[in-house]
Design a protein around this nucleic acid. Structure first.
Length: 441
RNA sequence: GGCCCCAUCGUCUAUCGGCUAGGACACGAGCUUUUCAUGCUUGGUAGAGGAGUUCGACUCUCCUUGGGGCUGCCA
């Protein structure tokens, strides 16, 4: 355990949190938790137009949702501007920086402060994930650190904040590799210790380009809305570029913390595979304790109806048990439980066409009403026994399919007899009658 | 263009010189089966190309090719 280790996640709040960005947060967090160091959050809110309180709230929200807790008070970059400028003055005084009149791309002319890069020698560092990196100083031109309007630019703000926060390890996106050579020179010019670096590869789309919103859900909030579990997204993102060294893929948070090593993070870009994420989500849904899954169902039911129907705990548990293994996304729950909540559920056109609008089906349903009506003990096994008796070992399809569509409106769902047991005798018989009267030919 | 980085199944990856190249997702087949799933069994698909080092190279070196990043008064 090394309590001197300090890492930070330093996003600029834009109202949305990109999955590539949050993966950097995950790696930082895991690194801190694994080493016993501290995980800091710095909000780089210098873009006043986009960095609204709402945008910052979204950021906090996403992090909390994923269980990424930070250790010290949030550091706001805008509150450190005075320090940035003081440091620039020091650089100016020591000759590491100079002022010059420049014309920017968009044509405005003004005096900016430039950082003076060394003109010879090699700048190098050992990146924890990418290995040894070196670049000739002459290949990097001087660069601006203060705008003509007097505001500090990213390079100086970032380095000064890292010094002030006493950051020891900078774990961030690959796109900052080139900046690192510049930043190292600033640290040295200031006589500050150079932190260790670890650059993370990007998450790319199927074309190998950086994953953007055009490629599907690119922001954390979207996964949340679509019914993904935070644990699943966390686990999936972690596996995109890291593995525990054996065949385990679904890991507990404790295992992740225990096993995570920055040295084992991949250098290559990883393609985002929504199918595997979906699979992993299903794995995590199966792990939800039954009682909690029941609550989840009730919550979703409340989006369908103002009053959650009254049932005993056994009824809810039975439903949850049946539903849990079939659920890939929490958002699939409402459609699956609709028929238990209300008599007014939609009928799937195709299913009706295929299962009910066929000759003889009406008679089968009417016959079933009689037989089910005579069942003394309204349980799944008893009901199944009735249909088994009718099918005489030849497959229950001709009975089962029409019943399912008649009582639920859908061609898929939980086990049919379990469904009937949950619905109860009255609803089942009424729905069979209704289908026979109005949906069959 | 210049500089930097990268390269194993379709995808995520294991392999740290001995490989009949393993696992997962996806896909195919089968079993279970009332639907949809789950579960179990099972199949196919990979080391970009070329030199070199070595008894031996997917693993090391070089070149080529391909991909990505950066090259702002953005971050």
């Amino acid at each position: 355990m090394n309590n001197d280790i300090r890492v930070r996640f330093a996003p600029s709040p834009t109202g949305k949190v990109h999955i590539g960005n949050i993966r950097a947060a995950i790696y930082n967090w895991l690194f801190a938790r694994h080493t016993g160091g501290r995980f800091l959050l710095r909000v780089e809110d210098t873009d006043l137009e986009r960095s609204t309180p709402e945008a910052i709230a979204v950021l906090f929200d996403c992090m909390k949702w994923l269980g990424l807790d930070w250790d010290e008070e949030v550091f706001y970059q805008t509150k450190n501007v005075k320090r940035h400028l003081e440091v620039v003055d020091r650089l100016l005084a020591s000759g590491h920086a100079y002022k010059v009149e420049k014309t920017s791309r968009d044509g405005k002319t003004g005096v900016v402060t430039m950082f003076r890069m060394p003109k010879e020698g090699v700048i190098e560092f050992d990146d924890i994930v990418k290995g040894h990196m070196a670049k000739k100083a002459e290949d990097i031109p001087d660069f601006a650190i203060v705008r003509s309007d007097g505001s500090p630019i990213f390079h100086i703000a970032n380095v000064v904040d890292d010094i002030d926060q006493r950051v020891t390890h900078i774990i961030r996106g690959d796109d900052h590799v080139e900046n690192t050579f510049k930043h190292i020179c600033i640290f040295k010019a200031l006589g500050a210790p150079v932190p260790k670096y670890g650059h993370l590869s990007m998450i790319v789309n199927q074309q190998g380009k950086p994953y953007s919103k055009r490629d599907g859900a690119a922001f954390v909030g979207e996964y949340r809305e679509q019914g993904y579990l935070p644990e699943a997204l966390f686990n999936y993102l972690l596996l995109l570029g890291w593995n525990p060294g054996d065949d385990r893929e679904v890991l507990t948070r404790e295992e992740m913390i225990a096993l995570f090593e920055l040295e084992k993070v991949h250098v290559t870009a990883a393609m985002f595979d929504p199918k595997k994420l979906a699979w992993m989500n299903g794995e995590y849904i199966k792990k939800i304790p039954l009682a909690q899954f029941v609550e989840e169902i009730k919550n979703r039911v409340s989006t369908l109806t103002s009053r959650v129907p009254e049932h005993d705990a056994a009824w809810w548990n039975y439903l949850a048990e049946q539903l849990q293994v079939r659920t890939k996304f929490l958002n699939d729950i409402p459609a699956a439980v609709r028929c238990f909540v209300s008599d007014d559920f939609p009928f799937d056109e195709k299913a009706v066409e295929k299962r009910l609008k066929k000759p003889g089906v009406k008679d089968i349903l009417l016959d079933l009403i009689q037989r089910f009506g005579a069942v003394a003990d309204w349980t799944a096994p008893a009901l199944e026994a009735v249909v088994k008796g009718l099918s005489q070992g030849n497959g229950m399809g001709p009975w089962v399919h029409p019943i399912r569509v008649a009582v639920s409106g859908r061609g898929e769902g939980i086990g049919l007899f379990e469904m009937l047991q949950l619905l109860g005798r009255d609803k089942t018989l009424a729905r069979l009658q209704r289908a026979a009267d109005t949906l069959c030919d």
